[in-house]
Amino acid sequence: MKILHLSDTHNKHRQLTDLPDADVFVHCGDFTDNGTEEEVLDFLNWLIELPYPHKIFITGNHDICLWEATSIEELPDNIHFLQDCYCEINGFKFFGLAYNHPESLIPHNIDILLTHEPPFMILDESNGIHWGNSAIKSAVFKVSPRYHLFGHSHESFGNLELKGINFYNGAILDNNNVINQRPKVITL
């Protein structure tokens, strides 16, 4: 199975053309800039148009109007808004932790964890500051998913493996909000 992972598009999603093929499209938050309903609707319409068989997204710190939402009405069945819940695709369990919600909600027995914030000191540096979350880091090593996908730190795009967990920061914008990375395809 192939996952196309990206994050932190900040209303620039329509600039993304010629995206690579994948079975699952994952966006780890900050698809808006100001968190307005209009921005969310534009993103959702774009997401619906994408040709991927499965699409998953979670909220980031900019997606304010969806922070407390538990679902979004009338989304197609192949789009999963993971707000402290999980879905299973091709035998893989994806769990999405809503932005600013307690890491204690992350369950055991998941394969792929989606958060907006990175774990502290893991692909979290931007402008010399570590933007990661210590509580998420502790929870990730306790739960031990096979993959942890996130964004938030614009200057730390990339991946690394640590203690059997594959970490991926999918933030594709730089600190000037210019697209400077190509979304990564993860092959499971």
Rank of each mutant, 00 (worst) to 15 (best):
I3E: 00
L6Y: 03
L6T: 10
S7M: 03
D8F: 01
D8W: 00
D8G: 01
T9R: 01
T9M: 04
N11G: 05
R14Q: 15
R14S: 15
R14C: 12
P20L: 05
A22S: 05
D23N: 13
V24Q: 09
G29R: 01
F31W: 03
T32C: 07
D33P: 02
D33V: 05
N34M: 15
G35Y: 03
T36R: 00
T36Y: 00
E39Q: 08
L41W: 07
L41I: 14
D42I: 13
L44C: 13
Y52R: 02
Y52E: 10
H54S: 10
I56A: 09
I58T: 04
N61Y: 13
D63Y: 12
I64A: 07
I64C: 02
C65M: 10
E68K: 15
E68Y: 15
A69Q: 13
T70E: 00
S71G: 11
E73C: 08
F81L: 04
L82Q: 00
Q83I: 10
Q83F: 04
D84C: 05
D84G: 04
C85W: 07
C85H: 12
Y86E: 15
E88T: 15
E88Y: 06
I89L: 06
G96Y: 03
L97A: 07
A98V: 05
P102N: 08
S104W: 06
S104R: 13
S104P: 04
P107S: 04
H108N: 13
H108K: 15
N109D: 15
D111P: 02
D111T: 09
L113T: 12
T115S: 01
P118R: 01
P118E: 06
P118Y: 05
I122N: 00
L123Y: 01
L123N: 02
D124H: 03
N127T: 10
N127P: 03
W131S: 12
N133Q: 04
S138M: 11
F141G: 06
H148F: 14
L149P: 00
S153E: 05
H154W: 03
E155C: 12
S156K: 01
F157R: 01
N159C: 14
L162E: 15
K163T: 05
G164C: 10
I165S: 09
Y168E: 09
N169Q: 08
N169W: 07
D174L: 10
D174K: 07
D174Q: 09
N176R: 14
I179H: 01
I179T: 11
I179E: 03
K184Q: 14
K184H: 10
K184I: 15
V185C: 14
I186S: 01
